[in-house]
Computed example of a mutant assay.
Amino acid sequence: MRWDELMDRAGGVCEFCGASEGLKAVDVTDQDQALLCSVCRGGGEAEAAHWRCLEGAAWSAEPGVQIAVWRKLGEIDAAWAVETRANMMMEPDVLARAEGQAEVVHLDAHGMPLAHGDTVVLVKDLVVKGAGFTAKRGTAVRGISLVLDNAAHIEGKVEGQRIVILTEFVKRK
């Protein structure tokens, strides 16, 4: 992001504490930046009370700021910081970037990306353990859900049963 765009987004102030002096762009991840003052960047000693500004900054709509706040709160050993971090509302992909995890991408048997709500077709007969039936090849599974922490699994309804299906056995319709 260019300097002038970052300044416009932040309103010309530190995105943590609101200070207007000593601002610099900080690369939070390879795709996220935040505009921070020298104190919030760690360039000087800050009183413990200074970091209470993170309670307000945690509500930023900007992913880069959310990630920076989440990480800084993890460094602070205080009950208010732990509580603020636990109550932050972040999209799953933003939280994954904050934790340094790669985004989980679900791919069908042909390498096509799958999304929540897609319709897929089974490419193989699947014995459904515990349900007593076999899901036949060619069966359409509508409105799938992605298992967020496992790229090899999706969920969907087959014959009225909610089941977990391996992505290698489906193709996107």
Rank of each mutant, 00 (worst) to 15 (best):
residue 96 A to H: 03
residue 42 G to E: 04
residue 156 G to S: 08
residue 134 T to L: 13
residue 111 G to D: 14
residue 126 L to Y: 08
residue 64 G to W: 04
residue 125 D to N: 15
residue 51 W to F: 15
residue 166 L to R: 12
residue 5 E to M: 08
residue 38 S to E: 13
residue 64 G to Q: 05
residue 130 G to A: 14
residue 140 A to W: 07
residue 5 E to V: 03
residue 171 K to G: 08
residue 64 G to I: 01
residue 8 D to P: 00
residue 73 L to V: 07
residue 99 E to G: 14
residue 16 F to D: 01
residue 29 T to K: 07
residue 22 G to V: 02
residue 51 W to S: 08
residue 32 D to C: 12
residue 10 A to D: 03
residue 155 E to K: 15
residue 130 G to K: 10
residue 52 R to A: 06
residue 11 G to W: 01
residue 44 G to P: 00
residue 168 E to Y: 02
residue 142 R to K: 13
residue 48 A to C: 03
residue 99 E to Q: 15
residue 72 K to W: 00
residue 66 Q to A: 06
residue 154 I to M: 14
residue 169 F to Q: 00
residue 107 L to S: 00
residue 91 E to R: 14
residue 119 T to K: 14
residue 25 A to E: 11
residue 101 Q to G: 13
residue 9 R to T: 00
residue 52 R to G: 04
residue 10 A to S: 04
residue 104 V to T: 12
residue 150 N to V: 11
residue 157 K to L: 10
residue 36 L to H: 02
residue 144 I to R: 10
residue 166 L to H: 11
residue 53 C to L: 01
residue 23 L to C: 02
residue 9 R to K: 12
residue 70 W to M: 01
residue 17 C to T: 04
residue 50 H to M: 02
residue 116 H to W: 09
residue 14 C to P: 06
residue 149 D to N: 15
residue 164 V to Q: 12
residue 77 D to F: 05
residue 117 G to Q: 12
residue 138 G to C: 03
residue 123 V to R: 13
residue 107 L to P: 00
residue 101 Q to K: 15
residue 114 L to A: 03
residue 51 W to H: 13
residue 114 L to E: 06
residue 116 H to F: 05
residue 27 D to T: 02
residue 30 D to A: 11
residue 91 E to I: 08
residue 134 T to R: 14
residue 23 L to V: 03
residue 66 Q to F: 05
residue 172 R to C: 02
residue 50 H to C: 10
residue 133 F to I: 12
residue 25 A to D: 07
residue 108 D to N: 09
residue 161 Q to W: 01
residue 149 D to I: 11
residue 158 V to W: 06
residue 28 V to A: 11
residue 63 P to N: 12
residue 93 D to T: 10
residue 132 G to A: 11
residue 100 G to W: 07
residue 91 E to W: 09
residue 16 F to W: 11
residue 165 I to F: 10
residue 135 A to M: 02
residue 173 K to R: 08
residue 127 V to H: 11
residue 14 C to D: 00
residue 63 P to F: 04
residue 24 K to E: 12
residue 134 T to H: 09
residue 146 L to C: 10
residue 161 Q to Y: 02
residue 119 T to H: 13
residue 119 T to D: 09
residue 7 M to H: 03
residue 12 G to R: 01
residue 53 C to T: 05
residue 113 P to Y: 03
residue 108 D to T: 06
residue 61 A to E: 13
residue 128 V to Y: 04
residue 103 E to R: 14
residue 20 S to Y: 05
residue 139 T to K: 06
residue 112 M to A: 15
residue 101 Q to I: 08
residue 97 R to W: 07
residue 69 V to P: 02
residue 24 K to S: 12
residue 76 I to D: 14
residue 159 E to R: 15
residue 84 T to C: 13
residue 140 A to S: 12
residue 133 F to E: 11
residue 51 W to Y: 15
residue 42 G to I: 07
residue 105 V to M: 14
residue 16 F to N: 01
residue 170 V to P: 05
residue 146 L to N: 10
residue 56 G to M: 01
residue 53 C to N: 10
residue 13 V to R: 01
residue 42 G to F: 09
residue 26 V to W: 06
residue 162 R to H: 05
residue 100 G to T: 07
residue 142 R to P: 00
residue 61 A to W: 02
residue 10 A to T: 00
residue 40 C to Y: 03
residue 71 R to P: 05
residue 124 K to I: 08
residue 65 V to S: 06
residue 73 L to T: 03
